[in-house]
Design a protein around this nucleic acid. Sequence first.
DNA 1: GATGATTTGTACGTATGTATA
DNA 2: ATATACATACGTACAAATCAT
Lengths: 245, 245
Amino acid sequence: MRPSEGEEASHGSLPPGFVDRDPSGDLLSRTTLADTIVYALTEEIVAKRLPPDAPLDEARLGERFGASRTPVREALRQLAASGLVVLRAHSTPRVAPLDHDRIHDLFDVMAELEALCAMRAATAMSAVQRAELESLHETLGGSMRAGDQAGYRAGNVAFHQLIYAGSRNAYLQELALGTRSRLAPYRGAQLESSARIAASHAEHGAIVSAIVRGESVQAGALMRQHLLATRDALLKLGHGLMPRL
Amino acid sequence: MRPSEGEEASHGSLPPGFVDRDPSGDLLSRTTLADTIVYALTEEIVAKRLPPDAPLDEARLGERFGASRTPVREALRQLAASGLVVLRAHSTPRVAPLDHDRIHDLFDVMAELEALCAMRAATAMSAVQRAELESLHETLGGSMRAGDQAGYRAGNVAFHQLIYAGSRNAYLQELALGTRSRLAPYRGAQLESSARIAASHAEHGAIVSAIVRGESVQAGALMRQHLLATRDALLKLGHGLMPRL
DNA sequence: GATGATTTGTACGTATGTATA
DNA sequence: ATATACATACGTACAAATCAT
């Protein structure tokens, strides 16, 4: 199995929650044009420079990327598979719309998937991974105290991904990553208030402790709570998003 | 290419007057060539007429389906997204290999996803859906007593999907369906022994009862157990598949 | 290891279906 | 409602990369 190291990446501005191709072993391939376009569009959608419902005309995109429509088509197919783009036959592709019910559903499942990861991690993580987790948590504390929000956000993504990997279940890891990337356009790019960051860090601490002590049920419950708190913080921050209930 | 009247297509039952939409994703197109190819290939892979690791040459497939490479490519992309096909850049696409660790991971997650569906269903299902579930369970009992294995299998799929829908979470439903379809090639086509069918039906009964009574935790636990029992039954039936531990 | 055959990646032209005036 | 415009769906040709030999 492959404990993915935190080393990234060839590009400067990484969309949060974005990783290379599926963890099924092959780590290509910026070698095809389509993949390059997928990467670029993902970043733009997540950063909301391409807002929900924005039309994605094949010809214009091809022009923008200096490519023909064929690789653009392939890219749009991949983006549709990952949920960022919707395709209707013979109709112009669009950035996935902002659907409140769907966002609610995504957060709900995200919380459960991450809780499951944390549970598994509590029993399956190697000693080395546990040490890494504690160390990363310390680093995040530093970012928090320094008021470095960007640093905290980047580290936060790594923190969660380390726990996905700790579950030692590659498919679970895929689902968690995929769900996180679907959620990415709705997680504000820089919406974390410093108050929320402090709370987040405290929650992380409890989770790390439970995982390191091997308390599986506790770890899962804390993680679920952490995700729901994150959701509520986002929903409160305007966004126009309201809880469903 | 026009529908040549020289039906020399040298291969049997691929009706251009095709079947209708795939049950899961109707976000995608209606009646494009690529979709009919996806449909046909999915069936062949699940039925193992296209075994794991079988090469899927674009040109040959296009010939077989009387289409050009373009829609074949689109179809292969969709199949890759649903996990049935693996794509490496510049390399010939293949049916997803049979990887024991991966199968184990898939079953593990499947059990948890279905448990989650059952939990949510126990609190979220409408009265109508509960009645449907009980009725379907009765029907399945009929198939069991009649020794109708094919009927039981079809009804079984419907049974589980009804519970996915009962969760009232569209994304959770998508994940459950997707995971089930990834598992489909490994669930034997007709591997259920009548003994296993009887046990399965009994387990269903307990699940239905828990859901109808609204006992969420119980419903989840029973469903998890049911899935793991199904897995063990499959693993025992040869297949060449061995448990990982 | 180099070379050749095969297959994928890309470009572009045509046809068909959708949406709008 | 009919017609027109326009974007996607598909077909085909060429270039580049892979793998066998």
